[in-house]
């Protein structure tokens, strides 16, 4: 693409983009910087470089936020959600993309509709009903709730991957005597596996970061997710912000590393699922 490219235009362009960089990075820089400082120094000046690097912030954060337990809880919840979403959504996306059923249109629009439903529309009966059935503090139940909320997005995204598969491949397999189920599992799934990986990454990110459902349904100390545990730790008044930022960094770091390594998948997936439908 060639737009007007005088030296001034380019300068202004990079200045604007640079301001954008600063806006995006400034709070993140504060997070990293202050996770290394003692609380007393943060009070003096949150912008200053650390005098001494306080690695023990991380050790205390790990212990106080019970990350040993809560990281495991988050990982379990995330893994369960990914498995549930990928397995159910790929089935649905295949049927909808290929219009295998007459009602494909209604189902598609029903699913699109539920993506915009406010969580409060179903939260209260779900909570009080769940409480009656003893499902509060049940990780599997929360994974099912996440699946319900995220699967329309996953279906819409996977649908575009199934659409890109030539029909001839499917027909050839059927002619060779494969059953419909074999066509789906042996032929279609391997072809769309990049799409499934993208969905897994994004759903993993959403479940790892989710707050509202997790804080409502997982309240017992040994069932908390890492994010909720961080929220509770940072809500106490006698707060040591060095420790809090260290806890924040522990949660954010794996996510950010994964994102930077696989940025193309994340960005295309998140943009594709919500824009292209």
């Amino acid at each position: 693409m060639k737009l007007v490219e005088s030296r001034t235009t380019l300068t202004i362009t990079y200045v604007v983009l640079g301001i954008g960089l600063f806006v995006a990075l400034f709070p993140i820089a504060l997070l990293v910087l202050n996770s290394l400082k003692p609380a007393a120094q943060i009070v003096q000046n949150p912008l200053a470089l650390p005098d001494v690097i306080r690695w023990d912030n991380f050790a205390r954060a790990w212990k106080d936020a019970k990350f040993g337990q809560t990281f495991f809880n988050s990982a379990l919840l995330t893994a369960l959600t990914i498995i549930l979403v990928c397995s159910t959504a790929s089935l649905t996306a295949y049927v909808l993309a290929r219009r295998k059923v007459k009602s494909w249109k209604i189902v598609t629009f029903y699913l699109l509709g539920t993506t915009t439903a406010p969580i409060q529309l179903f939260l209260f009966p779900l909570y009080f009903g769940g409480a009656k059935l003893g499902l509060i503090n049940n990780v599997f139940f929360v994974a099912v709730i996440y699946t319900a909320i995220y699967s329309p997005f996953a279906v819409m995204l996977l649908r575009t991957y199934f659409l890109a598969v030539p029909r001839e491949i499917e027909e050839a397999a059927l002619v060779d005597g494969a059953s419909h189920w074999q066509v789906f599992t042996r032929v279609m799934l391997p072809i769309v596996s990049p799409g499934i990986l993208t969905v897994a990454l994004i759903i993993g990110l959403y479940s790892w970061n989710e707050f509202l459902i997790a804080t409502t349904f997982l309240q017992k100390a040994d069932k908390l997710t890492a994010v909720v545990s961080f929220f509770l730790l940072s809500g106490q008044y006698s707060s040591d912000w060095g420790e809090i930022m260290a806890a924040a960094l522990i949660i954010v770091l794996p996510v950010v590393i994964l994102f930077v390594l696989l940025q193309r998948r994340f960005i295309e997936g998140m943009a594709g699922g919500s824009v292209k439908g």
Partner: peptide, 21 residues
């Protein structure tokens, strides 16, 4: 990638960073 970074950080963490820092 840099502009997208804030999107992948958990809301609870973003909120606390702004609140405290």
């Amino acid at each position: 990638v840099v502009y997208f970074l804030p999107v992948v950080i958990a809301t609870a963490i973003t909120a606390r960073v702004w609140q405290g820092m």
